[in-house]
Computed example of a mutant assay.
Amino acid sequence: MSDLSGKAFLVVGATGALGSRIARLLAGRGADLTISGRSADALAALGIDGAHIHSADLREPDAPRSLVEAAVTQHGRLDGVIIAAGVVAFGPVTDIDDDTVDDLVLVDFLAPLRLVRAALPAMEAGGVIAGISAVVAEQPLPNMAVYSAVKAAAAALFTAVRTEARRRKIRIVDVRPPHTETGLADRAIAGDPPKLPTGLDPDAVAARIVEAVLGKETDVPSAAFS
Rank of each mutant, 00 (worst) to 15 (best):
D3W: 02
A8C: 04
V12I: 12
G16I: 04
L18D: 04
G19W: 11
I22E: 13
A23P: 00
L25H: 12
R29D: 14
G30S: 07
G30T: 08
D32W: 00
T34F: 05
S36G: 06
R38I: 09
R38M: 01
A45I: 05
S55Q: 08
D57Y: 06
R59L: 13
R59C: 12
R59Q: 15
E60F: 11
E60S: 05
P61H: 05
D62H: 14
R65Y: 14
L67E: 05
A70T: 13
A71F: 10
A71Y: 12
Q74S: 14
Q74C: 15
L78R: 03
L78E: 09
A84F: 07
G86M: 03
G86D: 04
V88H: 10
A89I: 08
D95M: 11
D95F: 01
D95P: 05
D99V: 07
V105Q: 02
V107W: 11
F109Y: 15
A111Y: 13
M123D: 11
E124A: 12
E124S: 13
G127W: 02
G131W: 03
I132A: 01
I132L: 08
V135P: 02
Q139R: 15
Q139D: 12
P142C: 06
M144L: 14
V146I: 12
Y147Q: 01
K151P: 02
K151A: 05
A152I: 09
A153F: 08
A153S: 12
A154G: 06
A154T: 13
A155I: 01
A156F: 04
L157M: 04
F158L: 13
T163G: 12
R168W: 13
K169W: 10
I172D: 02
R176D: 06
R176G: 09
P178N: 01
T180L: 08
E181A: 12
G183Y: 11
G183N: 09
A185Q: 14
A185P: 09
R187E: 04
R187D: 00
I189P: 05
G191W: 12
P194S: 09
P194Y: 09
K195S: 14
L196A: 02
L200T: 01
P202W: 00
A204C: 00
V205E: 02
A207H: 04
R208Q: 03
V210P: 07
A212R: 00
K216S: 15
E217P: 06
T218C: 04
V220E: 00
P221S: 08
S226A: 15
